[in-house]
Amino acid sequence: MRKVKVYITLKEGVLDPQGKAVKNSLNTLDYANVNEVRVGKYMEVMMEDTEELEAQVEEMCEKLLANPVIEDYSYQIEEVIA
């Protein structure tokens, strides 16, 4: 079994109004040195291991987990010890 940690982030250049609102709130809380916040998504996918696991994960990201028009993705694969 593998745990796949998937990180989805908005592409550079795509406006993130939510991140901007969070950034403004942090500034309001006196964290004056916060310049930018980008909000993304984190997913944990538990999968049976296969030889093509990486290719499969990338395909899943392209097809569904991320929208390649606006989002980038990265992932880490960890072994799960039962």
């Binding site: 795509v14 406006l15 109004p17 939510q18 609102a21 929208n67 028009v69 606006i70």
Partner: peptide, 17 residues
């Protein structure tokens, strides 16, 4: 239609959320 690739582009949250 956008998500299924029948039209180009994507939707983001409204500018003012």
């Amino acid at each position: 239609l956008l998500e299924s690739g029948l039209l180009p582009g994507a939707m983001l949250p409204n500018r003012d959320l």
